[in-house]
Design a protein around this nucleic acid. Structure first.
Lengths: 219, 219, 219, 219
DNA sequence: AATGAATGAGAGTTCATTCAT
DNA sequence: AATGAATGAACTCTCATTCAT
């Protein structure tokens, strides 16, 4: 059931209407726009960012940019769409081929923390600006997010069935996915005292204990 | 040391410049502005909210409002300042007089989850819009937040010294405070499946286990 | 019944939303905007006219102008609203106190031709740009126009009952009102050969004959 | 003199510059563009219509369309040029071979009303948007229109010489041609109460009476 | 002869902030 | 201390037209 949800994936993808018809060109430009817009949104925030600045950063004229999107909000959606796809794919690869639930969840958490570290700016942006999307886009992004949490839930449900984990799998999945985002949302708090490695190890241990899995190096 | 941090409290408060002199009047109007602005910011978001709408909601004229603040951003700061004060006070009262570390942390978590539930809109707003504050205001708000985490850290450090908890107190404090905010930031995900009580109990159990405290009702 | 329609008058007036509240000031500024916009619309046409140019002509800043209207289309409606009111009032005054149907219709036609001559630019604009109004505004303007035609219809119906006129009163009213607008819509054609007086007299005679009223000076 | 005017005809036609040389191809494409543009202009209005939409409707690429016209305004001129030609030809055929002035003018009016009914959208467009043409195009279109009025004038002048009509032939010609367009310009007013046949018969009677021709069925 | 991606000037509109009263 | 009219910079978005291919 969750596997289905995760597999469903692109079904919820919202199409971005373009006046340019060449599919390959659109794909290529969307990629450039994604990169340019990420930079601009991250440095200035969605509202303060101007479409002009994004066009400039993407080496496109203003009209040129608008041939590949319809509204400023489309650009934000484009960014989030690419980001959630990247995150999901990274997670898929990370847990592939691991069968033991405890190992699998450990790998998932580790991967999540690593990618969150790598995309901390983008993830922070997503938490802050998903609200700026319209209904349809927001739905699409949240559905991707749900798929992502689904990976955790699937593992937990399996481990729960085998008696490895404690607590409600759905809630735990949500809690774990959320807790991993702490790296992006509270980095100003964490970075001042602990190294990224210490943070990561500490969080893995905390979560595993929270799931009822004994952690070796507890003093 | 942490006690100090928590006690330090108002020291970081940023003053809001007003053209009106009468201190009592300013305090009263600031209170009205806080309430009006909270409503407007929550329903429309910070950027979409107009100063006009806030003035109207606060039963002030546009010029009148500007006698008590200097910029729109001042209003946002005012909202966050009041909110963090409220949150801190609630936390203080919740753990007052409890000595046992496990009981104390349980009470703190419970209180946090309860107030997060009560102020979910405001807290979501704070997570999304702290970035819209200027440096000085942001610093002040984050320092308040740090004080809040300090409550958890203080308890954990004490329990750690007494051998009750596992893991790094600083990281755990951050993790716990952050995890509690899940109620505000991911309510669309949680509410669809679990009751508020189930969420709260599940999170308390997860956190306590994460701290290495045995939880009774684990199957 | 027609008297009612004509009397109904302002009932269909569409309100123009303003952010400025002072009613007198709004009335005064609307008057200035009406005059300025008429000039600009007439010289450049509705679409080519910029709101900036209208603001300049009205000695208002751009934002200032927008405090008295909501959209560019509001300005067009404002112009048409004033114009149709002026036209209607002029017609009312012209036929007041005349009882004989033939004299009354002659006076009405004469008045219409005179005001059409006086407001030819504005009337041409109205014929060309009523389509640029949105549904509600267009309805309001057309309802005014209908009232205007109603004056003719009322007279014709009365004369028809007394056996003075021939043909369908409704159609004749429409035809007469329309024919009078020829002065505004085809002045490039008329002016080249005949004086305004000749045009007016010729049209009055044509119409009266069309209604079946014997015309004296027919050779 | 008028015969000359009517015969002069195409002399005033403004040429549309094309990059394509092949005359037959240009003629064929211009015909397709005329039909496509008429539809688009009528449904959206000249200003709201985009050149893109016209190209699409004409099954041409954007660049392709521009090989047959130079500006958007060229397209509007093209439409009006074809339309006025069509109207003129219809009128010519309608009065051909009729000698009696009264019969001839009756036929002309009837034909005008019929074609106005058939091309009401196009004629309305012409009245509203001739102003959007540049000087040269406008001149060309108005000259065609003058030719059209010339048909009426010719008949009237002849009848006047024979003592059949009253009033100034030139003014009457203008008045008649204009009055016929009422069907296109005020159809919202007419259609609600009378059938097309009633309108047509009523107008013919009104005009004939206006010319001093006795009308049989007057009660 | 045909294509369609690219350009960029310019439009309408909003709103934080000021200041004369 | 209070009012609210006025300002104008800055924003998003459109579309006629060009030109490399």
């Amino acid at each position: 059931m969750i596997a289905r949800a995760a597999a469903r994936g692109p079904s919820k993808r919202r199409a971005i209407a373009t006046v340019v018809q060449d599919k390959d060109l659109v794909a290529q430009r969307h990629d450039e726009i994604f990169r340019a817009a990420s930079r601009v949104f991250i440095s200035r925030g969605y509202h303060a960012a101007t479409v002009r600045a994004i066009a400039r950063e993407a080496h496109l004229s203003l009209g040129g940019l608008y041939a590949y999107i319809r509204t400023k909000e489309d650009i934000l959606y484009l960014v989030f769409d690419r980001l959630t796809t990247t995150l999901r794919d990274a997670m898929r690869r990370a847990i592939e081929g691991i069968d033991d639930p405890a190992e699998r969840i450990r790998a998932a958490i580790h991967a999540d923390l690593k990618t969150t570290e790598a995309y901390q700016d983008e993830i922070l942006l997503m938490y802050q600006e998903t609200k700026s999307l319209d209904r349809a886009s927001r739905r699409a992004v949240l559905s991707r997010e749900a798929d992502y949490v689904g990976f955790f839930e699937e593992i937990l449900r399996d481990g729960y069935a085998r008696g490895v984990f404690k607590g409600d799998p759905r809630l735990a999945a949500d809690a774990i996915a959320y807790l991993c985002s702490i790296i992006a949302l509270r980095r100003w708090s964490l970075k001042s005292r602990l190294s990224p490695d210490e943070v990561r190890e500490g969080l893995v241990a905390f979560i595993l204990r929270g799931l009822g899995v004994p952690v070796e190096d507890d003093r």
